[in-house]
Design a protein around this nucleic acid. Structure first.
Lengths: 193, 193, 193, 193
DNA sequence: TATGAATGAGAATTCATTCAT
DNA sequence: CATGAATGAATTCTCATTCAT
């Protein structure tokens, strides 16, 4: 009685995410969600009491996924390869993540509750990356820049590239990531081991 | 008869931008715009034939502003100071630019025409920055990274930081920009003049 | 441009009143009103911005009618006949007035704005009656009871009888009004002219 | 197994009455009732098979209370004092009774079953009052007016005053009841014992 | 040009009711 | 007896858009 319900709610959230990715956040309506999830509109209101709640739960859902995503890496070069190539793949095959993320960011701009949740999500992601940098047993990657700040800069960079990748025609994502790779290699060598 | 019209249109666009900034893109409606601009809904339809057109013209308006913003800088250190501090100020006092920009990006995600316009806007900004880098008479700022790519990376970084700045609670914008400054100083010294 | 509009609005209010009388206030919906008035739902929202406003304007409409209804009577006996028989006719052929009135009273019970309007309406009706009593050139109809209080009591009585008349099966309205007539004749003779 | 059920039902009815009094009949929903009574919506459907039944049972509940309220009074002056002061107190501290009563009256206007029940309720109250008048051993209180009719008039008056008291701002309830008291004293003395 | 009344499609949300557990 | 998930119809309300003036 309890579990099947939880599963159902997760399904609804998954469907909602699909709606946003496929048709844009502006057409995430209860009607379209109901259609996509093959339930009645009433059912959706039984699970989420408002559209605001629905969007908040989507963010929470993404945040949970981020929590569980904490990687384990030991070699710095490997890390950069992994991190960047994973970022790259996110950009391309999995660009939907950023579509969703950006949409939610924009919706949160004028909604305190959503903003809090987005804030948490970003903090988690910053922490994740920061932890990874810590694990790679360097005191400091770049002179005068803490792991925390570097993580923020890196995540910002990834999000910013996502914006261009999602919108700019013929955006040379691969080349950009190669340049980014070079940049980091350079930085690491300067004051690295 | 021609001029007053153009002026009026510019006013409407300005009002529309204010609407988005103040209440979010989701509540940029013809009603609210009419109210803000103190004209009737019908009037807006005379100037913009649809909501899509309205949003496109907003992007065009921003793009034009970007065109005219091309700076003239000669000293690299000065440039970095200027660029970053201007970015910082944008983030803080003028964060509304990024609210607007991100909102339009998200709306464009599923609209080809808007996407083209956003694409152009970003290209212009990339070119702007690229030109500045060129002007500063260095062959290459960073080994193996073209001016164009560096410009893209920089703009991405600025947009990405904007996202965090707009959403993350107590985001340490100033500190982050200081770290960013250090990072760049470092890069420039490596293979600089 | 102005006048036809006013007329239209009045028509909508009239239709709304009919809806309440025919099907009860609980089924005064925008849908049913639109159907009854042969306009689209949007049109109704163009004229009344909310259901609350619609109901308030109905009360205002009734109030205006009350204002204009001020009678001119000179002979007391005649007045009693007139007043009571008019009340009686209201009860029967025109019982719809009280259906509407009671419905609006109940809706106003938890709505400040409506309550204010109903309050005004009742005060107008009390004043109307009070003025009539004044005109009939008696210092006091009944010893120790001011015209104002007597008017309130009379109007209350009429409303109270309406309740019974509208709900009680086989309510002997005519007989009750005869008794009421006797009562008043009696009172008038006690301390009358 | 039988009793606890009845008790529960009584509690639900009491909760329903509270809902109406606190938020108005239009927001007496199964949801809000379930919330107020701290049970599930389903539970309410076990006790009342429909909303109509619920409202009918509320009226029945009030009617039963009226049945049991039959007073025993012997002195006429005392009666008037009692009756009116009790009416007055109802008006003020216990005005909720009339809120509930009027709400149910209005809902019954277009529902035969409810109307029947309300009709019964009113008849009971009329009879109650009529009996009291009988008990006070007068042939007739007022010449030519039967006890029954006088009871109807009195109850109507009380209901009508309730309407004004519930809606009119700064309604001078106490003064009105004083005037009413004078009126009745007068009537009784005319053709009294 | 400018207005604002009118519209119909569709938005979010609520409701009474059913039913499997 | 009690629960609460599910439903679909209906409700209030908004929107972009049209059009006569």
């Amino acid at each position: 009685m309890a579990k099947p319900n939880i599963i159902k709610k997760a399904q609804l959230i998954e469907a909602a995410k699909q709606c946003v990715i496929e048709n844009g956040i502006e057409s995430l309506t209860f009607r379209s969600l109901a259609a996509k999830a093959n339930v009645s509109q009433g059912t959706i209101y039984h699970h989420f009491q408002s559209k605001e709640r629905l969007m908040i739960e989507i963010i929470e859902n993404i945040s949970e996924a981020s929590w569980e995503e904490l990687g384990s890496i030991s070699d710095s070069k490997q890390f950069i390869n992994d991190a960047l190539s994973s970022a790259l793949s996110r950009q391309q095959s999995n660009s939907s993540f950023h579509q969703l993320f950006l949409s939610l960011v924009v919706m949160s701009l004028h909604n305190k509750q959503m903003k809090n949740k987005i804030s948490n999500l970003i903090k988690i992601e910053n922490d994740n990356l920061s932890n990874i940098l810590h694990k790679l047993d360097k005191d400091q990657w770049i002179e005068g820049i803490s792991h925390e700040h570097l993580a923020i800069l890196l995540n910002s960079l990834i999000d910013g590239i996502a914006i261009q990748s999602l919108t700019v025609e013929n955006f040379p994502a691969e080349e950009i990531f190669e340049s980014l790779y070079k940049l980091f290699s350079l930085l690491i060598n300067i004051k690295g081991d």
